[in-house]
Design a protein around this nucleic acid. Structure first.
Lengths: 235, 235
DNA sequence: AATTATTTGTGTAAAAAATACGCAAAACTA
DNA sequence: TAGTTTTGCGTATTTTTTACACAAATAATT
């Protein structure tokens, strides 16, 4: 399978081609706020600006593989799951030329990155206090967040932001941070338990207040959750 | 903005590049079944197979513009709205070389195509009786359908498949065809009216049975619909 | 003109889900 | 031991969803 001609000038095609990149919006959680992982750009364009990790597609990989590889190269992270949420293809979105990007988001336990953080230029920012972003990454973030809010009802992704064991209030704070609204403690717990995606695991060692019960995620109930919330049973 | 070198062999780049195409899954409705518009491929690869309309990205257009243009060129159709639902990038998905496709779906009133149908090779197929499809278009259809089912709750796209005026049973048959399940007539109507997205418009001229009331879509209530169904108020 | 077949219109009662809300218990601090 | 914070738990009310049956309007048939 070869559709190009190798010349002394590089790889030549009959028609011009756009370059393809992937970008990844990585969400984290500090127990209170939703965070985003950004990388400070070392080179032009947008030198010194912050941007999402990402890079050019190789010829032997899918866009999913590309997003995963670039993320690992730039941050050391290897998320369990990456969700594709859109393609950005404005003609002038990259000053270097015609570059089209396929965007993903993933959820990461914050500790994972502080450990293997080879890129000294990677930093977490609270979602509500971001520096200026490179390219069209502000739009991208907006869409990533919209996708996350949409998906959190159908996919068990929220749990990826928490430790294996967590208290109900912790889980609730996460949902509140993502969805940007407040819920009633008692009703939140009631629904969570009713959905069957969490199970009791013990009691936390508390600090300064009554200790909460610990819960963990029940993977077997992924699909059930999907079912459960894929909207009203009857139209 | 120029990132290539023009040689006698074509457009040369420092690194190899994948080609980018768009494909469009066009849904129609015959009052009973959900239909898909396919095009018979005239050339290799997959000559004689059926495929979704689509083609290569030009350098001066976004992927949305490309999908729209290709669709118009191949079928004469100009849908009001096209929804992007995924990128297909398996390395070997196209025998011609590395080709990555951005996929869209759109909903069309069936009459529109029978009119301006310059492509004699375009045909509607019932979604449950499709011929063998080219490339990875079977996967693509599956995902398009999943996206459509997801979106029909949040976006007022369903109405694009109906005439301006329609009866409640017609609307219901459409929803049933898309979602693949049956609903109670009375409850369906109750919810539709409660959502405010339809308003009464008169009475149909009937044939062989009691005539139904005609309804039409209320565009102002798009957002409300979105709101209405963006899930439970409290988590 | 009356009968039949088909399809539509409408309302109400029961069940389930969502919401609002209050008080007691466990840890830490002073 | 009293005060503060945060969690655990249960019930009454409201809203939404579901189940369900009979009457009315047309066209075709006799």
């Amino acid at each position: 399978m070869q559709d190009y001609i190798k010349t002394d000038k590089g790889y030549a095609y009959e028609y011009p081609r756009a370059a393809v990149t992937t970008d990844s919006v990585i969400f984290g959680f500090d127990g209170q706020e939703l965070l985003v992982l950004l990388i400070k750009r070392g080179g032009e364009p947008y030198k010194g600006c912050w941007a999402f990790p990402g890079g050019f597609l190789n010829m032997d990989e899918t866009v999913e593989e590309c997003a995963f590889r670039e993320l690992k190269e730039e941050t050391g992270l290897e998320p369990d799951q990456m969700e594709q949420f859109g393609v950005f293809s404005a003609v002038d979105r990259d000053p270097r030329g015609r570059v089209l990007t396929v965007s993903f988001y993933a959820l990461i336990k914050k500790e994972q990155v502080s450990g293997g953080d080879d890129a000294a230029d990677a930093r977490w920012f609270p979602i509500n206090a971001l520096p200026p972003l490179a390219f069209d990454h502000s739009d991208m973030l907006r869409e990533a967040l919209a996708a996350l809010k949409r998906d959190i009802y159908h996919k068990p992704i929220g749990f990826m932001l928490l430790d294996e064991h967590f208290t109900m209030p912790q889980l609730q704070r996460l949902y509140e941070a993502i969805l940007g609204e407040q819920f009633d403690r008692r009703n939140f717990q009631k629904k969570m338990l009713a959905s069957g995606v969490v199970e009791e695991q013990g009691v936390e060692r508390a600090m300064g207040h009554r200790p909460g019960k610990l819960f963990s995620f029940v993977p077997e109930n992924y699909d059930q959750m999907k079912e459960h919330d894929s909207r009203a049973k009857e139209f």
